[in-house]
């Protein structure tokens, strides 16, 4: 008996292709920009756009590894504290006479250590959800920042340091260049390497991934450490932007970061999503907040909108699923 063969190519469906969440995001993104342009004549000029991106991109760095964490089905809410702690340590060692370059390296090291601790705890204490572990380390890291600096600010960084956040190379801000660099790396790693494939596999079914001979624990630790490292990069740009830091810096960043990731189409149930969507969401949310600021909307309302967006982004796929299930049920009953 000749059995039918399994084919190795599939037909391209343009409907399915354009129904992807990323296209919807792109449309919303364009709408936001049209809205902003109507608020301010200068907005759509090249310089204006560049300047706008400088305001919010520091958070954007954390978004990449956070996307990996959420794809794996975990979450890390300690990021804002990691930003605070690593920036506070950087400022303190600099003021104690360490050269700025070394201080930056120390900052990265502190971030990596914070992430590593989260990763090891998550892996070694599987009984506990990552929420509760990062919730405790969030308190702990922020607390250490307070011990180091009390309630004061520290700064006095060298002048060149502020160039990181405010400087341009051929009219393009340094921070944007660095952001694009990391965006490219993380996109390639997630979608084109074994490592990325494993991250998706873990998010869908970590047990089966382990049974497939993949060291799930190592991958989780690496990803959590990446969160720490990227949080310290955020800390560097944030400190450069303000030229000082305080223990209470960056509070509430976890909301913005998680909102960007979820808005970018990463499923909170794990295992699904695209980096391009997340990158779009960074600019979407950033420009939205910037635009609302342009017309003097209170920052509190911007927070409300961010919170609602987060919930909407999670609720919409769930509602779609419910409608699908409901229709299925009706078909069966008919």
């Amino acid at each position: 008996m000749e059995k039918p063969k399994v084919l190795t190519h599939k037909e391209f469906s343009s409907v399915r292709y354009f129904l992807q969440w990323e296209w919807i995001l792109l449309i919303i993104f364009i709408l936001v920009n049209i809205m902003n342009a109507s608020f301010s004549d200068n907005y759509l000029k090249f310089d204006g756009l560049m300047r706008a991106s400088m305001i919010f991109l520091d958070k954007g760095f954390i978004v990449f590894p956070m996307a990996l964490v959420i794809i794996m089905g975990d979450i890390d809410i300690s990021v804002s504290s990691t930003v605070a702690l690593s920036s506070v340590v950087m400022a303190t060692v600099y003021n104690a006479g360490v050269p700025m370059g070394l201080a930056i390296l120390i900052c990265l090291g502190v971030g990596a250590l914070c992430g590593l601790i989260n990763g090891i705890l998550v892996v070694k204490f599987k009984e506990l959800a990552a929420v509760i572990i990062t919730l405790s380390t969030m308190t702990l890291y922020r607390g250490i920042a307070y011990i180091i600096l009390k309630n004061q600010s520290a700064g006095g960084f060298p002048k060149w340091f502020s160039e990181l956040s405010w400087g341009f190379a051929w009219k393009i801000p340094y921070i944007l260049i660095v952001f694009v660099f990391f965006a490219a790396i993380f996109t390639l790693v997630l979608h084109k390497t074994n490592f990325g494939r494993y991250v998706f596999a873990i998010g869908n079914n970590d047990i089966a991934t382990r049974f497939s001979g993949i060291n799930v624990d190592h991958i989780k630790i690496i990803v959590f450490t990446l969160v720490g490292v990227m949080a310290s990069i955020c800390a560097i740009f944030l400190s450069a932007k303000m030229m000082s830091t305080r223990p209470n810096v960056a509070s509430g960043y976890e909301l913005d970061v998680i909102a960007m990731v979820v808005l970018g189409g990463i499923s909170t149930a794990g295992g699904k999503g695209k980096m391009i969507g997340v990158i779009t969401a960074v600019f979407l949310l950033g420009f939205l907040q910037y635009g609302l600021g342009l017309i003097n909307v209170q920052s509190q309302i911007i927070i409300i909108i961010t919170g609602l967006l987060l919930i909407l982004a999670v609720a919409i796929p769930n509602i779609q699923e419910m409608i699908k299930n409901f229709n299925k049920k009706r078909e069966v009953n008919l």
Binding site: R197, A201, N204, N205, T209, S212
Partner: peptide, 17 residues
């Protein structure tokens, strides 16, 4: 639970390990 990534296609499941 232990063998397959249910939401993946056949091809990716075969090559995962």
């Amino acid at each position: 639970k232990e063998g397959l990534v249910m939401e993946w296609d056949i091809g990716r499941n075969i090559t995962l390990s």
